[in-house]
Amino acid sequence: MLQKQTPHSGYHFLPLPVATRFFEGWYYRVTLPEINQTFAFMYSIDDPQGGTAYSGGGAQILGPDDEYFWRTFPNVKGFWADQKRLGLGHWQKRPLGSFPRELTPNQFKQQIEEGYQATARLNQGKLFDPTTGETVTWEYEITPIYGWGDSHRPQKATAGWLSFFPLFEPGWQILIAHGLATGFIQWQGKTYNFTNAPAYSEKNWGRAFPAKWFWLNCNAFKEDTDLALTAGGGRREVLGLGEEVALICFHHQGKFYEFVPWNSKVSWEIQPWGQWKMRAVGSELIAEVVGTTDREGTLLRAPTEKGLKFACRDTMQGQVHLKLSHRRGKTLLEATSDNCGLEVGGIPWSGSWLKSNR
């Protein structure tokens, strides 16, 4: 079991004398391999200081068969987040005499008409769509297994130690690379109950916004339940200049395998949609990841310079093949899944995105 939270788990926003663009977003996912379905919950806050055209929050859900649900939270005063640990929430309406804060699950159910709250060990909420009358309700507890690093060592920052300085925009941190979730989700009149289902969470934040990115994520492999993959890349700002970077990382049997720009040569070929190919060559090992899908995917909103806009396409039912081998040729690990999260962002792309380091 994971002993300590990852770096960057706390809320990053600090008020400034003059309000400027800022966003922070959180992503929680639970996969139900027995029915080949996944629920992904995306929470965000824009310009929490208030006073801009983009101030407010949002909650998006990608449900079974990539169906989409979302709600806005226009009032930033209904939002709370902990700066020292993973903890956040947003209420649509504040009960009389109360202020936004973490509640017990029972208090939340009794007092909050619409909203959500999430920590390292809980994801809970209720959203209502006034146009359709649909209500989505969820509550599940999470037992973290892997954060970002070897199980019994201090956890790592996803972007390395330089991420603690205001150099990279936006920031990105995997919070729980793998955990076990137990609880329920009520969706479109059906209740999904689950015990020890694969769970995952990550976050991003900053005052600049990514122009283009891709992402692959899976912790529900057919061959091994103790395997969690996160891979991706993008064009980010470093001291105001753009650069393209990517990583392939995974946890297996208590060990963290990290292929990142400072220790490996990472190359990729990503199509506008349908195929993700990545390869990383380290000092001793080679990691290869191929993600594919014939599904259309679903457009999701993402933080942009002009607030939450449809800027990425996702599916939670992608196919993935992961292979780890020694540079001398011996295969050390090989696994597949039909429950892979696949994403491209900054769309539309005009052609394949290719970077070769060979």
Rank of each mutant, 00 (worst) to 15 (best):
T315H: 03
W213I: 11
V18T: 10
L62W: 03
A208P: 00
Y68W: 15
T315C: 14
E114Q: 15
E305S: 08
K77A: 12
G97P: 04
G171T: 02
T225A: 13
F23L: 01
W205P: 03
Q275T: 10
S350D: 01
A280H: 09
V290I: 15
G189I: 12
D65M: 02
K355D: 02
K306C: 01
T52Q: 13
W273A: 04
C218D: 09
N36C: 04
G345C: 01
W349T: 08
L180C: 04
G254A: 07
C340R: 06
T72G: 06
G242P: 06
G63L: 04
W215M: 00
I174K: 04
W273T: 14
A81W: 03
R327P: 03
G274V: 11
E134C: 05
D226H: 03
A220K: 05
W70F: 15
P210I: 10
S163C: 09
Q110A: 12
E244A: 05
A280Y: 13
N75A: 15
Q155W: 08
I286D: 08
P170N: 10
P64F: 15
E67D: 15
M316N: 12
K4C: 06
T298W: 05
K355Q: 15
S163L: 04
G206L: 08
Y68G: 02
L300Y: 01
E243S: 06
K355P: 01
Q155K: 10
K126M: 09
S151C: 04
S151I: 15
Q319G: 02
E237Q: 13
E343F: 08
S337T: 07
A335M: 06
F41E: 04
G125L: 08
Q49R: 05
P95K: 05
T38Q: 03
R85M: 03
R101G: 03
R279E: 14
F165S: 06
N36K: 14
P100C: 03
P105Y: 11
I61S: 08
Y192E: 07
K156Q: 11
A311Y: 13
I185V: 15
S350Q: 10
G87S: 11
L96S: 15
S163Y: 03
L175S: 11
E139D: 14
N36D: 08
I248Y: 02
T292Q: 13
F194W: 04
Q271S: 14
K330W: 00
T336P: 02
G307M: 02
A159I: 08
T6R: 07
W215A: 09
